[in-house]
Design a protein around this nucleic acid. Structure first.
Length: 932
RNA sequence: GCGAGGGUUGCCAAGCCUGGUCAACGGCGCAGGGCUUAGGACCCUGUCUCAAGGAGUCCAUGGGUUCGAAUCCCAUCCCUCGCACCA
């Protein structure tokens, strides 16, 4: 049968056969298998990195479906959140970068792009694109269950979920620092920033120095150095404000006033004082009561902290230089740095040392930042406080920092002051962004020890792939604290008890896997009727369905469908979600659902690279999935992504590696379509069938363990290499025997989860009327496994290799090859060595056993050789050989084959019947070979 | 810095848990041969060094345990991911 292979035509044809094929409904007494994937946020087109995330679960779904399970694989779209709002705004403003991305990279048609000023148009467009590409890839998704997270029914579901959590007291109100633009009067996310998106919110400690009736606060990240303060710095060129902060009189910079106000402090301006006026005066050290002078420094930035700085010249290079400069002018010469921290590889005054070693001439030297960082890091990681630190002496810097902070907050009125880590953090509107404390923010209280404890107890029940990630989950559970679960802007569901807030996107997608089970049916119900009690009945079985606003039959149907599918069996997601989403969903399942409905397992994916580089839409380093499918075909893309790495490993899409994969599929196509002409039988048939059983087992085990790459290697490369040896061993004019019909039928099915289109077509081409997608998975038949046949082929394979190795080395023109087979007593030695557990007495056992005439040969040497040989063979093979092997008949039967392979005459001789000295080299499973 | 994972022969990548089956699976690339008008594809062979089927050196670096280590232990260096209001 000669048939041209055009992948795209086949794929289109097959997609028609699959319409509505993968829409499972509950079937009584049929075992279900429910898998799901973290749903996409459709703000752009899919690239090949996304491909694997959805292809691997599909491969697994297809495998279990062929195993006879009722498999549910649903998909939905997560459109909650703020990023699309930003995108829509940028498109409305005709931002060139954004337009370029969407027009040129994502190929969005102009008229659609024009409508992208509406964020819902964006998510709808890309949701449809996602579905289109997923269908092209042949994903066996039940599309009836598709939904988005802003449909009214889903919002009702979120309200139901949170009302329960709220009632349990796990949603609490608190305050939280966020980036905020005073001009827009809104929180700013990364995507809203014009500049400074790498800036973090830093938490400074405000140390207050009494100054007459005032206090002068200084902001520091290193409160433990308070003991080494020698002076304060004030900028003599600016004017400070006298203010009243929460009833206390402070002196701070103008810039600090607004920041304090945004951090919930009441600030009243009462006067001014120039920096120059402050210089020369002194404050009181809050701890020691010592007098601390205020010195002038032009480097003090009114925009950072309070606009006044405490100086620790022994440990802060900048402070040291500033002081040195003044002292070189003969001023303040009585001030000496106070060393506080002992650091390995540094002397007593590290700041001085590092500045002098690097010959820093003045404060503005560009190296200053790096040096400061170097010293701070060294002190933080390895520093120990010395005897100048009072009660804190002997503590690590890390420890002392926490302790001193607590101490100062309790006894000296210190407060936490939040500020950005970079000076310029600019909102899209052009204004400076500050830190604002939201005081009515809602939090999920993951810090609740009872809740945490429940998750810790449950985690061992959850199957995790790969197992190494378990420790990361454990750590995440410990590390999670209150999570702000609401925000002001974006798409999403309103908080029922506080409607000015919306649920934040990570918080509204924690138990949606349960919603899939009823998603296709709940759309029939008017959202107004979806009360708390309705969901209570569907998901918890609570209440009387006769008294609810939805009719009883529908309710019972939804309830039973949910119970049929739930709990889910496996959830797939990328590894970067362990520290939030994947752990959150454990918390939420635990607190909503009973024991028997908790998540059963998770598979965590590695990251995606493109030609060795990180994939990034903004940098243009992406390859769109749709383009890949059009260029190479869906099956090629699938097989490449499955074959390049196991799911949990990082994978790299390398352009040059893709075409060879397509050729492999074409090769399979050819082999399968050539097979019907095979006829007759051959002695090698039994071997091929035996090997096939092992391949079936290996593939089955690999798929069961989510080792899709290994499964592919066994299913493809394994079968191909078996077929290669089989063809080599066929009689001269045979191109295949009827055994191929069986092999081909199995092979198609083993490959079906990975390349479903090609195999579906091949399945029907080879005369089947059902879909291979639902064909029974092959089962290995142990009665078809023949150890003896496999060993004899192994012996031939090794011998052929050895003959060829020798032919290559030998200088003479060979005429013939003689094989000398090891005598019976050597086989006896082999068995003894292989089965004797006490390795030290092997020689004794052998000498006692082997009969006398053998002893004029070098028995000891043979034992050594045999031991070496045994070490170099797989243990199963060794045991099989030890059990007995008839080499003479194996080689006799394969004489023609050996002659064909070597193109030489072959003679097979028992070593003991020949005087040839080389014959003594013969070992079991390793005949002596003489070429002449 | 903290937490998790990882560094294998030109490249990608198995093996490591359960030490000898490891010169180390498989794929890619490269070289030679076959096939072909030619190219591609396909098939065979080779791809650390020396060599009658063997030997030597090798699995980030440096030590250690062991009869024996890519595999176990210790130290060091390097890479990736996460560190929160964001999908």
């Amino acid at each position: 049968m000669e048939k041209e292979f055009i992948m795209s035509n086949i794929e289109q044809e097959i997609h028609k056969m699959w319409i509505s094929a993968f829409e499972p409904n509950p079937v009584k007494n049929k075992e279900k298998y429910y898998i799901n994937v973290a749903f996409p946020y459709p703000s752009g087109a899919m690239h090949v990195g996304h491909g694997r995330t959805y292809i691997v679960p599909d491969v697994i779904a297809r495998f279990w479906r062929m195993q006879g399970k009722n498999v549910l694989f649903p998909m939905a779209f997560h459109v909650t959140g703020a990023p699309v709002l930003g995108i829509a705004k940028r498109i409305a403003k005709k931002d060139e970068n954004t337009l370029k991305l969407y027009r040129d990279l994502y190929h969005v048609p102009q008229e659609t792009l024009d409508a992208f000023t509406d964020s819902t148009v964006i998510v709808n467009y890309f949701s449809n694109e996602y579905e289109h590409v997923m269908k092209q890839l042949g994903l066996s998704i039940d599309w009836r269950r598709r939904f988005t997270t802003i449909v009214p029914q889903y919002s009702k579901f979120i309200e139901w979920q949170y009302s329960h959590i709220y009632d349990q007291g796990k949603v609490v109100k608190g305050e939280y620092p966020i980036r905020y633009c005073p001009n827009c009067d809104q929180p700013v996310g990364d995507h809203d920033l014009l500049e400074g998106d790498s800036a973090e919110i830093m938490h400074f400690v405000l140390v207050k120095y009494p100054f007459g009736e005032f206090v002068i606060p200084t902001a520091t990240l290193r409160p433990e150095t308070i003991f080494g303060v020698t002076n304060l710095w004030a900028n003599p060129n600016i004017t400070y404000l006298k203010v009243e902060v929460d009833g206390e009189k402070w002196i701070i910079s103008t810039e600090a006033v607004e920041k304090l106000r945004m951090q919930r402090h009441i600030v009243i301006e009462i006067g001014t004082i120039s920096g120059a006026e402050l210089v020369g005066k002194a404050v009181t050290h809050p701890n020691t009561g010592a007098s601390v002078p205020i010195l002038p420094a032009s480097f003090v930035d009114p925009n950072i902290g309070s606009g006044l700085v405490m100086s620790v010249p022994a440990h802060a290079p900048l402070d040291y230089i500033a002081l040195r400069d003044l002292q070189q002018q003969g001023k303040y010469t009585d001030i000496v740095p106070i060393p506080l921290v002992k650091v390995p590889n540094f002397g007593a005054i590290p700041a001085q040392e590092i500045v002098e070693k690097n010959k820093i001439p003045h404060q503005d030297d560009p190296k200053m930042n790096d040096l400061t960082q170097e010293l701070y890091t060294a002190e933080f990681s390895k520093g120990i406080l010395n005897e100048n630190c009072g009660d804190h002496a002997g503590k690590s810097v890390r420890q002392a920092r926490t302790d001193v902070t607590c101490e100062f907050m309790e006894t000296h009125g210190s407060i936490i002051f939040h500020d950005m880590s970079e000076k310029r953090v600019i909102c899209r509107c052009g204004n400076q962004v500050h830190v604002k404390i939201l005081d009515d923010q809602w939090f999920l209280n993951y810090a609740d020890p009872t809740w945490k404890d429940q998750i810790h107890k449950q985690l061992p029940e959850v199957a995790l792939v790969p197992p190494e990630i378990r420790t990361e989950f454990t750590r995440t559970i410990n590390w999670l604290k209150e999570w702000p679960c609401t925000r002001r802007v974006g798409l999403g569901t309103r908080v029922p008890w506080d409607p000015k807030w919306l649920f934040e996107p990570l918080s509204d997608s924690t138990i949606y896997m349960s919603y899939y089970t009823i998603a296709h049916k709940i759309t029939r119900i008017d959202a107004e009727k979806l009360t708390q009690a309705v969901f209570d009945y569907i998901f918890l079985g609570i209440g009387d369905y006769n008294t609810l606003p939805v009719d009883a039959d529908t309710l019972k149907e939804l309830r039973s469908e949910f119970l049929y599918w739930y709990p889910y069996d496996y959830r797939f997601s990328a590894k970067d979600l362990i520290s939030n989403h994947l752990t959150f969903q454990l918390f939420h399942h635990r607190t909503i659902f009973p024991d028997e409905l908790q998540p059963r397992g998770m598979v965590v994916f590695g990251m995606a690279l493109l030609n060795g580089m990180k994939m990034s839409s903004s940098k243009g380093n992406v390859f769109l999935l749709e383009d890949a499918v059009n260029e190479f075909g869906a099956d090629t893309v699938r097989m490449f992504l499955v074959g390049s790495a196991e799911p949990w490993q990082d994978f790299d899409w390398r352009d040059e590696l893709v075409p060879p994969v397509k050729r492999q599929i074409e090769r399979m196509w050819q082999v399968v379509l050539d097979s019907p002409s095979a006829n007759g039988s051959a002695s090698i048939d039994a071997w091929l069938i035996s090997r096939l059983q092992r391949r079936i087992d290996a593939v089955t085990i690999a798929f069961s363990a989510f080792q899709t790459r290994k499964a592919l290697q066994e299913a493809y490369n394994g079968v191909v290499s078996d077929l290669a040896w089989y063809h080599r061993r066929l009689p001269k004019n045979s191109s295949g025997t009827t055994v191929l019909h069986e092999v081909i039928s199995v092979w198609i099915r083993l490959m079906a989860p990975i390349i479903p289109h090609t195999t579906e077509k091949l399945w029907s081409e080879t005369g089947h009327t059902n879909l291979v997608s639902f064909a029974p998975w092959p089962v290995a038949d142990p009665t078809k496994v023949s150890e003896a046949v496999e060993i004899s082929e192994e012996l031939l394979k090794r011998t052929v290799e050895d003959i060829q190795a020798i032919l290559k080395l030998v200088k003479i023109k060979a005429r013939m090859v003689t094989l000398f087979l090891a005598p019976a007593w050597k086989h006896r030695v082999f068995t003894i060595v292989a089965t004797t557990k006490d390795k030290h007495n092997v020689m004794k056992t052998v000498m006692a056993d082997v009969d006398v005439h053998a002893k004029d040969e070098d028995v000891a040497n043979i034992v050594v050789q045999t031991t070496k040989l045994i070490h170099s063979l797989p243990p199963e093979l060794v045991m099989a050989i030890a059990a007995g092997i008839d080499e003479f008949s194996i080689f006799s039967a394969a004489k023609t084959f050996l002659e064909k392979e070597s193109n030489l005459a072959i003679e097979i001789v028992a070593a003991e019947s020949s005087p040839h000295p080389k014959g003594r080299m013969a070992l079991p499973f390793k005949p002596a070979i003489v070429v002449e």
